Amino acid sequence: MNRAEKAALQLQAVDVLRTLKETRTYDELAAETGLPAGDLNRYVNGHVLPGVERAKDVVGGVGREMLAEELAARIQLDRDGYVDNSQVVFDQALLDLVAPVAAEAFAFERPDVVLTAATDGITLAAAMASHFGATVAYAKKSKETAVEEFIESRQRLESGIELTYYLPARAIDTGDTVLVVDDLIRSGETQELLLDIAERAGAEVGGVFALIGVGDEGMRRAEQRVDAPVGALTRLE
């Protein structure tokens, strides 16, 4: 980790602590993090930055737990099992905080491209790409008029519906490392289409990440497909 990366991590830890402090006293925050209240006060108020190892613990540990709780509180699940996550995917500030936490918690390799499916995954993909300094690409269910060459992936779903995604061929280069992200993973069908696109492009998959994992099927299918970290920040049964 170079100096710039260390500084970025330390600042991300401060962002996490400031977010936590909005709804907690310093004593409560100290109890949750295991850090002295006096140190927390200095971090939150910008007087000093936490050390690198302490910053890692905050971002990858406490930050992950805090964001998982926040996501769970914002998600609504109806009686038919449909998930309303609009309070999450429309909040770019929250997603900007998710990116460094997910990167630290799941140890994703720095990607060249963050790949998602239009539309709900776009805001998360933008946050992840910004964090890593990567480009963002999103596959659509229809071809863009001005684009001549596409990478195409097609799959017949269990329901009998045939789903096809298209990505402009220039979006991913051969040898690129691709991080596949989405707002939600349930059956894993969308993620398999995105992984197929990455493979057709000759790219290496550096991981699969979702904000919300519903059940185990999608996560299991992704884990069987790639030799890279697979994770979701919060899980629903």
Results as ranks from 00 to 15, higher is better:
204 E>S: 12
175 G>V: 11
79 R>P: 00
174 T>E: 14
114 V>P: 02
45 N>Y: 11
203 A>T: 08
132 F>I: 02
192 E>I: 09
215 G>L: 04
167 L>F: 07
140 K>V: 00
237 E>W: 13
39 D>V: 02
235 R>A: 10
143 K>M: 13
194 L>D: 02
8 A>R: 15
129 A>G: 12
26 Y>N: 07
34 G>K: 07
41 N>I: 00
98 V>S: 05
124 L>E: 05
198 A>I: 05
227 D>W: 01
142 S>Y: 14
212 I>Q: 02
7 A>E: 13
125 A>Q: 06
96 D>H: 12
135 T>R: 15
50 P>L: 04
33 T>A: 01
20 L>M: 15
59 V>L: 01
168 P>Q: 07
94 L>V: 01
178 V>F: 13
162 E>C: 11
82 Y>A: 06
28 E>G: 04
24 R>Y: 12
114 V>N: 06
2 N>P: 09
191 Q>A: 11
53 E>D: 14
108 F>V: 05
201 A>C: 12
182 D>T: 04
218 G>H: 12
133 G>C: 13
189 E>Y: 06
196 D>I: 03
73 A>M: 09
40 L>R: 06
44 V>I: 06
164 T>M: 05
196 D>V: 03
28 E>T: 04
144 E>H: 11
59 V>M: 08
112 D>A: 07
138 Y>A: 01
165 Y>M: 12
191 Q>E: 09
200 R>K: 15
126 A>I: 00
198 A>G: 01
97 L>T: 12
201 A>D: 08
98 V>D: 04
29 L>A: 04
53 E>C: 07
29 L>C: 03
168 P>E: 04
97 L>F: 11
57 D>A: 13
195 L>F: 03
4 A>R: 15
150 F>V: 02
223 E>S: 08
149 E>C: 08
93 A>D: 09
33 T>F: 01
108 F>D: 07
53 E>T: 12
214 V>C: 03
171 A>S: 15
95 L>G: 08
184 L>Q: 12
63 G>F: 03
214 V>R: 08
21 K>C: 05
45 N>K: 15
7 A>Y: 14
7 A>T: 10
86 S>E: 06
123 T>I: 01
161 I>C: 03
79 R>W: 12
72 A>V: 05
53 E>A: 03
15 D>A: 03
34 G>N: 05
91 D>Q: 09
147 V>S: 09
58 V>E: 10
214 V>K: 09
234 T>Q: 11
20 L>V: 00
198 A>Y: 08
224 Q>L: 11
126 A>W: 00
214 V>E: 03
120 D>A: 10
147 V>N: 07
12 Q>P: 00
230 V>P: 01
37 A>L: 06
226 V>T: 13
202 G>F: 06
15 D>P: 00
68 A>E: 04
167 L>M: 06
234 T>Y: 11
109 E>M: 13
104 E>H: 12
9 L>C: 02
32 E>L: 10
188 G>A: 05
59 V>T: 07
21 K>T: 02
211 L>H: 13
17 L>A: 10
71 L>A: 06
111 P>I: 07
107 A>V: 09
192 E>P: 00
59 V>D: 02
133 G>F: 09
131 H>R: 15
197 I>S: 11
15 D>W: 05
187 S>L: 10
117 A>D: 01
232 A>V: 14
95 L>D: 08
208 V>G: 00
